[in-house]
Design a protein around this nucleic acid. Structure first.
Length: 189
DNA sequence: CTTAGGATCGCCT
DNA sequence: GGCGATCCTAAGC
């Protein structure tokens, strides 16, 4: 079985989906841009919300693939994930940064900021710029307000350790577009 | 340039 | 009560 969207099989392992998502365009209500940074999380992963099994918060992570898992971070920010694998597995990809392309003015207004480099360079910033909230949790990525467009050409993907976690620090499941100025942090290479 | 603190929700022990 | 898959601002070197 496979859940195809934007040329990606979302039933694949999250580290594979995370790598393939680099260069894909993400729009929410027509506003967004190119994904330049992702992180993979899996059920067998001490750093993952899914590690300790389903809860009210992470329920959509155990739902069908190619759906959104949105959670509140530090009680303040929203963070957007794409669910992977078959329903019930509990895997996902955190969208950490995008290169703003569509709706720059709307994003600037929502973020209260002019600098394009800082508009979407972090998981909380992405959700603020694209106006993603709890209301998007559990929604399919194959239908409005979401839109995923396949990447145009080849991309140069870098991998490294994930950010902001205290477990499984050695797992290189952070992926990025090499040299992009829109990353939340540069990769050391 | 690096570090420190505050904001404040949901789940954990 | 503690601790995050964070971000912003301010202060220090």
């Amino acid at each position: 079985m496979s859940t195809l969207l934007a040329g990606i099989d979302f039933d694949a392992p999250s580290e594979e989906v995370a790598r393939l998502l680099i260069g894909v365009t993400l729009l929410v209500d027509g506003i967004g841009g190119r994904i330049v940074e992702t992180e993979a999380y899996d059920r067998e992963d001490p750093a993952s919300h899914a590690f300790s099994g389903p809860t009210a918060r992470n329920a959509s992570m155990f739902g069908p693939a190619a759906h959104a898992y949105v959670y509140r971070s530090y009680g303040i920010h929203w963070c957007l994930n794409f669910v992977c694998r078959e329903a019930g597995h509990g895997a996902g990809v955190l969208i950490r940064a995008i290169e703003p392309v569509q709706g720059l003015d709307a994003m600037r207004a929502r973020r209260g900021l002019m600098d394009a480099r800082l508009l979407c360079s972090g998981p909380g910033r992405v959700c603020q710029a694209l106006a993603v909230t709890r209301e998007h949790n559990g929604l399919s990525l194959a239908a409005p307000p979401f839109e995923l467009l396949p990447r145009a050409g080849d991309v140069d993907v870098v991998a490294g350790p994930r950010i902001g976690i205290s477990k499984a620090m050695d797992v290189p499941w952070r992926f990025g577009l090499r040299g992009s100025p829109h990353l939340s942090k540069p990769f050391r290479t």
